[in-house]
Computed example of a mutant assay.
Amino acid sequence: MSVQQIPTGKIIDLEEVIAIELTNSKGSYVKIFNYGTIINKFVVKNASGEMQDIVLGFDSFDQYLDPAYLENYPYFGAIIGRYANRIKNGKFTIGEETYQLAQNAGTDTLHGGVVGFDRKVWDIVDISEGPQSSVTFQYESVDGEENFPGNLIVDLTFELTENDELILSYEAETDKATAINLTHHSYFNLSPKVGNVKDHKQQIFASNYLEQDDNYSVTGKLIPVAGTAWDFTKSKAIGENWNEEEGYDQTFVLDKIYGDLSLASKTIEDESGLVLSVYTTEPVAHLYTAKYLAVKNGKGGQDYDSYGAFCVETQHHPNAVNIPEFPTTILNPDDLYTQTTIYKISLNR
C-alpha cells in the first residue's frame, strides 16, 4: 500500500492544489485532488487483466477550471455540499429563521448553490500508508457561506483496501443548526470503450422511488417501483425500459434499516467483467444516467456525451429540509454528522 502526493503547480485562493494517489498491492489506484476532493482516476484490473479507469474526467487539472466545462458543469467526481440535489425554491426554515439560498437551478437550489464544496480547496489533514492507504481532507464552511447558517467543519476520508474497496467516510460538526446533505458525484463507466451505458446491467435495492416535479425537485411522495421502468429490484440493462430521451435522474428509497451499512446498488458490464457494488449508510441512492453530459476533450481526448456514464449518489432524501416526514437533514451543534459509502470493484467471472 502506498500514498503519493503530486503537486499540480496550481494555486487557488492562496491554497496549493495537490493530487493524492492511493495504491494497493494489486496495482489498483485512485487519484484524488484536494480541490473539491475530485476523484480523477479509479484504476482497476478488468477480467482481461488490463488496467482500466472507470471514472470520467480529464488528463490535466486545469481542464476542470475551463470556462467551457464550467458553462455546462457536470460536477465531475466531486463532493457535493452543503446540500446535495435540490432544495425547493432555494428556501428552508430552522426554528423561527428562514434562509433564502441562491436559486441556481430555475427557482431551486442545486448542489449547495453557486460555489459549493466541489469548488473549494480542502486541507490535507492526515495521510496513512498502512495497513490500507488513506487520506483525510478537511474543509471549514463559514457561517453564511452560500447563505447556509453555522460554521461547519467537514472531514472526508478516502481509504483504498486490498479488496478494491474505495471507502468514503464523512464527519461534520457545526456551531449552529444547519442543513446538510453530502454526497459524491463520480461518473462511472465500466466499459473498456466507455460510450453509452445502456447495456450496463443495473440493480438497485429499493421498492420505492421519490416523485419529482418538472424541475426534478422531490415532492415528498413515494411511488412503488413495481410495474414501472424504475423497477431495478432485479438486475436489468439500464436501457431496457428507459425513455431514450430522458434516461434516469431519480432518487430511490433503499430497502434497509436507517443508518446500517448495506448494499444499495450493483452494476455489471459484460465486456470488462467489472462489477461495481455500492454500500452505504445513507437512506437513498440517486441514479443519474448523464442526460445533460456534453464535455469535450476528456481523458485521451475523448468527448463525453449524453448517457456516457452513470452516477450512484448516496445521500439523504433530497429537499428533506422542507419535508418533515423524511429523515432529518438538520445538524445541531451537539450532534455529529456521519456517513459511509463504499465503492467496491469485483469481477463477474
Rank of each mutant, 00 (worst) to 15 (best):
G308I: 02
C311M: 10
A290Q: 08
G301Q: 13
Q315V: 12
A309C: 07
H317K: 00
G298Q: 15
G300M: 13
Y288A: 01
K291E: 14
L287H: 00
T289R: 04
L287G: 01
G308S: 12
N297L: 06
Q315K: 03
A285H: 03
V284D: 03
Y304S: 02
E313S: 02
Y307A: 00
Q315L: 06
A294P: 07
A285G: 00
Y292K: 13
Y288S: 07
H317Q: 04
L287T: 01
D303W: 10
V295N: 06
S306R: 05
L293S: 11
L293M: 15
T314R: 10
D303M: 10
L293P: 10
K299S: 11
T314S: 07
E313V: 01
A309D: 11
N297Q: 12
Y288H: 08
Y292Q: 12
K296C: 07
A290K: 07
H316V: 00
N297A: 04
Y307L: 01
Q315E: 07
P283W: 03
H317Y: 13
F310A: 06
Y307E: 01
Y307F: 02
G300P: 14
G308L: 09
L287I: 03
E313I: 02
D305Y: 09
P283L: 03
H316K: 01
K291W: 11
K291H: 12
V295H: 08
Q315I: 11
K296V: 15
K299M: 11
N297T: 03
S306E: 10
D303T: 07
A294I: 14
Y292H: 14
Y288D: 09
P283V: 02
A285F: 05
D303L: 00
K296L: 13
A285I: 09
D305Q: 08
H286S: 10
D305E: 14
H317A: 05
V312I: 10
F310R: 02
E313N: 02
L293D: 11
V295E: 09
C311N: 10
Y304V: 09
K299F: 15
T289L: 07
T289Y: 08
D303Q: 08
G300V: 10
A309P: 04
E313H: 04
Y292T: 13
Y304E: 10
V312F: 01
V295M: 07
D305G: 04
H316Y: 02
Y307V: 01
A285P: 01
